[in-house]
Design a protein around this nucleic acid. Structure first.
Lengths: 161, 161
DNA sequence: CACTATTCAGTTGTGCACAACTCAATGGCG
DNA sequence: CGCCATTGAGTTGTGCACAACTGAATAGTG
């Protein structure tokens, strides 16, 4: 039994506004909190995401970063240039495959990690959620994103609505 | 009590990557799904959000839109210009207060609403969530955003907008 | 009334997301 | 081997988010 099917379109539009807004606003609010916490590190939120995966792996090709963060080269190329200009990473073309560019954390970038260690704890405190809440929310969002990313575009076309 | 307090910083950083990524990715995935669904209407996701509040209220000052969507004039001014160029809305300076600009839905903009009615149902189906799931997720995200924005949740709740 | 502070919309500049594209390197196939 | 499709990074152009600012209109205060 899906209660959604019983709602008229009008009500759907109202509900949609609430959902659209809540997700959009939550993402921006989260972004804003991180912006504040990361200000002292000189990192933006997406740059922090990139540094997090690089801190875990030491070095990765641009493609590898993109796969882990679902970002394409159009977003990553200029972002990585800025991280390199800031001295946090180094980029060099791969010897085995001249098409590929390997991104490696510099000594300065590794030192930045130490200064970043306190950030997540402060964010966690700001959310007011405990570990179970956070984990639950994370799992739901991950599942939702996975489903939406794997969607056939045709399912969103009017003929299928 | 709070399991978060027992985690070392290292573990926190790992957890943070998962949370940051999941929220960031979910927001972008949602955005992508709407982009696809809204393509035929010629609207972007933020433009759709603006049209949703305008369809509910008929006309609003720029400030009123900004309050409901937590967006400032730096974002809204160019966006509204594009909506006006597309013929969906009309902007005119208020007679009572020359500082204020009133945004009103045009006949074309109202007609667009009819074509938009099917969008939320298709999105709802795409998420694979039922009404209870959606409502629960929405409430959590709204509460989280409210806390992070440092505001009273009631002021942010769409139903009060 | 005159003066100041605030409000409102808009502009500028930076950074991110994404589509569409370029270009060189690689891999596959006949 | 030669040809062509594919891959990987980068570039260009559009739109959004946000900070910092401008300028005009209004509100508040003495």
């Amino acid at each position: 039994m899906d209660a959604l099917d019983t709602l008229p379109d009008e009500e759907f539009l109202r509900l949609d506004r609430q959902i659209c807004f809540s997700l959009h606003a939550a993402a921006r609010a989260f972004n804003g909190v991180y912006r504040e916490a990361l200000k002292e590190l000189g990192l933006t939120y997406p740059q922090y995401l990139v540094m997090l995966v690089l801190w875990e792996h030491g070095e990765l090709p641009v493609k590898g970063i993109g796969e882990r963060l679902r970002l394409d080269s159009g977003t990553l190329s200029p972002l990585l240039k800025r991280l390199e200009a800031a001295g946090h990473v180094e980029r060099r073309r791969s010897a085995e495959d001249e098409r590929s560019v390997t991104v490696r954390v510099t000594a300065e970038g590794a030192a930045l990690r130490e200064r970043a260690l306190g950030v997540p704890r402060r964010i966690g405190a700001a959310t007011g959620l405990d570990l179970a809440d956070i984990t639950d929310l994370r799992e739901r969002l991950t599942a939702l994103a996975a489903r939406l990313d794997g969607l056939d575009p045709d399912e969103l076309r009017p003929s299928c609505g």
